[in-house]
Structures are given as C-alpha cells and as structure tokens.
Computed example of a mutant assay.
Amino acid sequence: MKARIRLWLAAAVAATLAGGAAHAAEACHGHPGGDAVKLTVEATNVRAAKGEVAITVYPDDVRRFLARGGKLGRVRTPAALPVTRACFWLPPGHYAVAVYHDQDGDRDFDRDGLGRPTEGFGFSNDAPARMGLPAFADVRFRLPAGGKTISLRMRYR
C-alpha cells in the first residue's frame, strides 16, 4: 500500500512538473495599488519552450519606442508553450509593447548578416513588421482603468 501511494505521489509530482511550463506563473513588473491597473501580455505562437521571452512596455512617446533606455518596464520569463505570459502594474493610459523570444538566452535580439531577425518577435495589436519596424501608431493601445489583457502572435522568419 505504501509503495502504491509513493508511486502515485511521484506520478503526480512528475505530471505537475511536466505541465508547469504551459502554466507558468505570470512574472509581474511593478506593484498593485495607487492608480496602477494590471496589464497582462500573452505571447502566442511561441515556437519552443527554451530560452526566455522578453516582454517590454513603452510609454506613449514615439521617440522612446524601441529606443535605448526608452522602456517603462521589461519582464524576462521562461518561454512556455503554448502561451507565455507576463504582467505589468501601470497607470491607465496609452502604451506600446514589443516582445522577442531569446531562444539562446544571450539577452540580445539576434539577427543574421542581412539584419533579419533570427529569433521570434511580436508587437502589440499584432502590428506587422514586413519591411522594417511597425509604425508607433500601429502598436499603440489604450490601457483602461479596469486593466486589460492583450495577446500578440510571435513571428519567426
């Protein structure tokens, strides 16, 4: 009987660990309270559960979008299938989000010799990036007083 219970417990632990990546806890930036509301970002179409997904929030300022030092916050969370999530506590307003899948964990957005991305990426509003970066107006979204969840599809070239 004891052996059967141990076996059942071991199986339950193994199942929990195996499913953990798909249901990884949200990594949050900032703190609740005051006028902060929760922005949850869901990156879908993540290709592999290796490396980490870097989710970055930018203020409502075209000059700061994707600029060095321009971010409001960034969460780096282990890549999880089928969706990787992170959250931010921010005041209601307008923002933009950029995401990339740092598969090799070097904390750099890798490109090939021609400057094309070699790692997955995405933007709020699923703004397209066909021949360069999307326009700020295409990635800008409103975070209402009740909070919001946005989903964006990771793109791999």
Rank of each mutant, 00 (worst) to 15 (best):
A24P: 01
A24H: 09
A25I: 03
A25M: 08
A25P: 12
E26V: 01
A27K: 09
H29T: 11
H29C: 07
H29A: 12
H29L: 06
G30V: 12
G30L: 05
H31N: 11
P32Q: 15
P32Y: 09
G33V: 15
G33P: 07
G33I: 15
G33H: 11
G33T: 12
G34W: 13
D35C: 11
D35Y: 11
A36R: 10
A36F: 13
A36Q: 15
K38I: 14
K38G: 11
L39D: 06
T40L: 00
T40I: 03
T40G: 00
T40Q: 01
V41M: 00
E42Y: 03
T44D: 09
T44C: 12
N45T: 06
N45H: 05
R47L: 06
G51E: 00
E52R: 08
E52A: 02
V53H: 00
A54I: 02
A54P: 05
T56S: 08
V57K: 05
V57N: 10
P59F: 13
D60G: 06
V62I: 10
V62G: 05
R64T: 11
R64Q: 07
F65P: 04
F65I: 01
F65S: 08
L66V: 11
G69T: 00
G70R: 09
K71T: 08
L72R: 07
L72V: 11
G73L: 06
G73R: 05
G73T: 15
V75S: 01
V75C: 02
V75A: 02
T77H: 00
T77V: 11
A79C: 06
L81R: 10
L81P: 02
L81H: 08
L81C: 09
P82C: 09
V83M: 12
V83Y: 15
V83G: 14
T84L: 12
T84G: 13
R85L: 03
A86S: 11
A86F: 03
F88L: 07
W89A: 10
W89L: 15
P91Q: 08
P92G: 14
G93A: 13
H94P: 03
Y95G: 02
A96G: 02
A98D: 04
A98V: 00
V99P: 01
H101G: 12
D102C: 03
D102F: 00
Q103N: 14
Q103M: 07
D104F: 13
G105H: 14
G105Y: 14
R107G: 07
R107Y: 13
R107M: 12
D108I: 07
D108N: 06
F109E: 04
R111H: 10
R111V: 15
R111W: 15
G113Y: 14
G113H: 14
T118H: 05
T118D: 11
E119I: 01
G120N: 07
G120K: 12
F121K: 13
F121S: 05
F123L: 10
F123S: 03
S124L: 02
N125E: 03
N125W: 04
N125R: 12
A127H: 04
A127F: 07
A129T: 08
A129K: 04
R130C: 11
R130D: 13
G132I: 10
L133N: 14
L133W: 08
A135T: 02
A135C: 09
F136A: 08
D138M: 01
V139C: 07
R140D: 02
F141D: 02
F141N: 01
R142N: 04
R142W: 06
P144E: 13
P144G: 08
P144W: 13
P144N: 07
G146L: 11
G147F: 05
K148L: 04
